[in-house]
């Protein structure tokens, strides 16, 4: 277990290093000059050049990268125009927002977490529940209804279901306020009210996929020999399904769920855009549009951290569920 974590930590570092290098190189491949975006009017070439110098964009790329990495681990001095001293973990100073990147992240990260985690709980419960139900009622109207629901969910784009939800619940019935983010610690009820449509829209989309997966897994598991053994012992149907089949059927779903949640935490661009909520996803899009290198780097790295973390969590869960899996 300890060895497993150390190994995974090292490989995670390697992954993040590779991601950071790639993001850095891709930024410089962008066709636009970040500095022109920073002063829209009355900028003469001399002034632009001075800004480039200040931002270090004239330094060799490897030095720029080294300076960035140094900032993360020990902090760096960014100069008076960029807020001066920036302590570790320093992710730089936004070219566009006049704000340290860490401050921006501290604002938008809780938003994305608040969207994704409740949505994931909802979509897993709904998806797995529906899938199991339709597997056990295979061939009946319950099965067809559940599959129809999941087919609908999988086919509709989020910006469509999102818009429908907004029209019905916010504009017509006026049951909910316009989607917005309030911290759960300030006002839990308002937090839920402001985000519930986003949860439902995401859950509808994802639960569809999970329902189909869960149904297929359950049907496969029900034909396993050990399920036949459980029935041959004289166990009640409830025990056969609940204790013997279910646990084996959901194991493969753990992997997919882990990766989906990890990826979603990296930014739910479409959800945030549809509901007009400023989370990590929209922040990343704005950063790319504005050529905001420190912001791009930060959002890319955060997303990578979530995916890597999700993988470790999946492996740990797998080992907890299946005794044949040995971590090492």
């Amino acid at each position: 277990m300890g060895r497993f974590l150390i190994k995974r930590l090292l490989s995670a570092m390697l992954t993040l290093f590779a991601v950071s290098v790639l993001a850095f190189l891709m930024f410089f491949a962008l066709p636009r000059d970040p500095v022109t975006g920073m002063c829209p009017k009355n900028c003469n070439p001399e002034r632009l050049e001075r800004v480039r110098q200040e931002l270090g964009l004239r330094d060799p790329k490897i030095e720029q990268y080294a300076a960035y990495m140094k900032g993360i681990f020990v902090g760096r001095d960014l100069g008076s125009a960029q807020g001066g001293r920036c302590d570790a973990p320093c992710l730089g100073y936004s070219y566009v927002n006049s704000e340290a990147v860490t401050d921006t992240l501290a604002r938008v990260l809780p938003v994305t977490l608040s969207i994704v985690i409740p949505a994931a709980i909802l979509w897993l419960a709904l998806g797995v529940g529906l899938g199991m139900l339709s597997a056990l009622k295979r061939g009946t109207w319950v099965d067809r209804l559940a599959i129809g629901f999941s087919l609908t969910g999988a086919s509709l784009q989020l910006y469509f279901t999102g818009a429908v939800l907004l029209i019905v619940f916010v504009y017509q019935l006026k049951l909910l306020p316009n989607p917005h983010y309030t911290s759960i610690f300030d006002d839990p009820l308002d937090w839920a009210k402001g985000l519930v449509l986003a949860w439902v829209a995401l859950a509808f989309l994802f639960s569809a996929i999970y329902a189909r997966l869960a149904r297929a897994q359950m049907l496969e598991t029900l034909s396993e020999d050990f399920v036949r053994t459980a029935r041959a012992k004289g166990l009640a149907k409830r025990t056969v399904y609940g204790r013997h089949a279910l646990r084996a059927a959901v194991t493969p779903l753990v992997t997919i769920a882990g990766l989906d949640v990890g990826a979603a935490l990296g930014g739910t661009v479409i959800t945030e855009t549809t509901f007009g909520i400023q989370g990590l996803g929209r922040t990343a899009v704005y950063a790319v549009r504005g050529g905001d290198l420190p912001m791009i780097m930060a959002t890319v790295l955060i997303a990578a951290v979530f995916v890597v973390l999700a993988n470790v969590v999946v492996d740990l869960l797998y080992a907890a569920i299946d005794p044949r899996v040995r971590l090492g």
């Binding site: 396993e224 020999d225 050990f226 036949r228 053994t229 459980a230 041959a232 012992k233 004289g234 166990l235 013997h244 646990r247 084996a248 569920i321 299946d322 005794p323 044949r324």
Partner: peptide, 18 residues
Amino acid sequence: GRDMAMIFQDPLSALHPY
């Protein structure tokens, strides 16, 4: 399981792995 019981061909797949 009480009055009549069965043993199967492949005990690895017939026993629950978990």
